[in-house]
Design a protein around this nucleic acid. Sequence first.
DNA 1: GCGACAG
DNA 2: ATCTTGTCGC
Length: 219
Amino acid sequence: MPEDKKLSIEKKLKNAVREQITLASQVVMEDFPPFDKSIVTGIDVHYSGSLAVGCATVVEVETLKAIQTVTLNREVQVDYIPGYLYLREGPIVLDLLKLLENTGPVLIDGNGVLHPRRMGLASYAGVVLNIQTIGVAKRIHVGIIGPRVDNYAPIHDDDEVIGMAVWLGKEKPVFVSVGNNITLSTSVRVVKDCAVRGYPEPLRIAHRTAKEIARNTQL
DNA sequence: GCGACAG
DNA sequence: ATCTTGTCGC
């Protein structure tokens, strides 16, 4: 990689760190405002070369069936850098959410405050739009997993609990964290209540949908 | 210096 | 995450 390119990336990351720290101070780790318990939304982004396909699926909690699905296709130029997923997926996630009237709590494929600066993608979307979000990651990015009790293991970083490993029936747990406007215990409950075969159904549908569209879309 | 590293 | 069909295994 050219040296000048490398310098411009470093400059962008420096600004991103400042933005993340500012936004992190605005995360609300309480159940506010009272959310619609009857629906829950999942968001995922799939890639095919430079094409990014984002999908948001609103699911009815009682039946776990999709009642609304929106997608966006976009050309993406930003590489993924660990700790800065929001630079790559933030814009499309925000635009997906703007297309929805009612979402209930929003599950996002990535982390909330389970992040080096407590500002993962889920918290980013939650703070910017002032909505209720939850981070659900398939792999851990930061923190130390404490002792498992039943199907839960707290994830610590420094002296605070910033997430929870949750076993939903498969060998591998999912890593749940507060996005915004919610407590960790409520986040875990929401994830459990919409899980099917070891994974939250809204995220599974969003992932499947985005993948299918990416596969059938010409660049 | 070395390894780890959401998607 | 992506490039990629069928295939080995729990």
